Amino acid sequence: MTRLRVVVIGTGNIGGIAVRCLQGRDDVELVGVWGRSRNIGTDAGLLDTDQACGVIITDSEEDIFALRPDCAVMALNIRDPIEAVRVNGEWHVKLLEQGINVVTASDGSLVFPPSHPEQDYVARLEAAGIKGGATFYANGQEPGFVDHMAMLATTLSNTIKCITSYELFNYSMVQERAEMADIFGFDELPEKQAILEQPGAQLYVWGGPLINVADKLGYKVERFEELYEKRVAERDIKVAFGTIEKGKVAAIRIRTSAIIEGREAVVVEHVNRMCDDIAPEWRKADTHGCMRIEIEGDPNIALECTIGDRRKPEELGYDGYLMTVTRIVNAIPYVCAAPPGLTSFRELPLTTPSSALRSDAVSIDHKILRPGG
């Protein structure tokens, strides 16, 4: 079997884990890694493990394109959403126009391209793919897998009143304060507005999944509603990035709803805490983290996916990244075989992994997540 040649663009947590997950497979081969950090000139295998893989990280775009890869895993870590669209978009167009397929978890709004708020950008990617004969695919844990799980659950339904996708996570093991503070508002005074509190921010992240599920069921969303609540710590709380002082935000509840036929019909709700006993009136998982689908209807349905080993809660953050990576790495052979342009999980076959039962499948030691990676 001729293996597909794959490059990784980015050397943060997603990129490092992607390098590890591309090892040992029968159908793909890592041939290059591009970065823009202190890792230039080092072996890419050392990003996430202590084992070299023989691929040296470069900061030369020319070197990456000269490899003539079949597919690129786009994994740049850019927190500013406007800058992310600009930088990722430039890479996406160049890759697609040169016939290189692209898989990414960097823009959740492209999981279901018709739902993206910037359709001119979608059209540009589609045109680039057609021109180069290449395919673009976005997915991840959420958006992505959770949408897929919700659709799967509806196959058990006769009639549906409301579908709610829950993310119930204890985030106390996250090591990077900036991400928790800027995006969610954790470890800030309650009057400070987080990114996800800003009007329309939730829709940019979760509008796509809501539209995706509604569209699959044959409905159009009439309007959206956004809710953001927060609770402050009643004592100092030790977390992985330091201490959240009494009076600062330690729990949030985010609820984004699609209104169909005058009622909440499809909902995404996140309840995230920094300790288990805060905000007891909100939904809570039995483990450090889970994704849960609940359907109120005929019949009532609950489907839950827990994450990681409950005996090792410190692994939760890493496992979340890992699940995001596998949703795109496992899809590479299917994306490379798909028609040119943009595709989604609704068009692809089930993206099961290759060589998954090999002997090293559960024996690889990985590095702890790197702040700012």
Rank of each mutant, 00 (worst) to 15 (best):
I244A: 08
L322G: 05
G242H: 12
I254S: 06
A302D: 01
E304P: 08
K238D: 08
G262N: 01
R327W: 02
I244Q: 02
T243N: 05
E269P: 05
T306V: 15
I278Q: 04
G308R: 01
C275E: 13
I260K: 00
K312H: 09
V266T: 04
Y318L: 11
E261D: 00
A265T: 01
K284C: 10
D276K: 05
F241C: 10
L342Q: 02
R253K: 15
L322T: 08
G262V: 00
R263W: 00
R327N: 08
R346I: 09
Y228N: 04
C305F: 15
L342W: 01
A258E: 01
D319C: 07
G247K: 04
N330P: 08
V325N: 05
E269M: 05
R255K: 15
D276W: 03
E294P: 07
T243V: 15
C305T: 15
C290S: 15
A331K: 02
V335D: 04
E234C: 06
R310D: 09
C336S: 05
S344G: 09
F345D: 08
H288K: 15
G308D: 01
N330E: 11
R292W: 10
N272V: 10
G341F: 05
G247M: 03
E294R: 10
I328R: 08
T243E: 09
V271N: 07
E229A: 12
C336G: 03
V329S: 07
A279S: 13
R292L: 15
R231Y: 11
P280C: 06
P299L: 00
S344H: 09
N330Q: 11
A251H: 12
G308W: 01
Y228E: 03
P333V: 10
S257Q: 07
L350P: 02
E225R: 15
D277I: 07
K248L: 13
I254T: 07
C336A: 08
G297M: 08
A285Q: 12
G341I: 03
W282E: 10
R327C: 11
E222G: 14
A338K: 01
P340K: 02
A250E: 13
R346M: 06
T352S: 05
K230S: 15
E234A: 09
V329H: 04
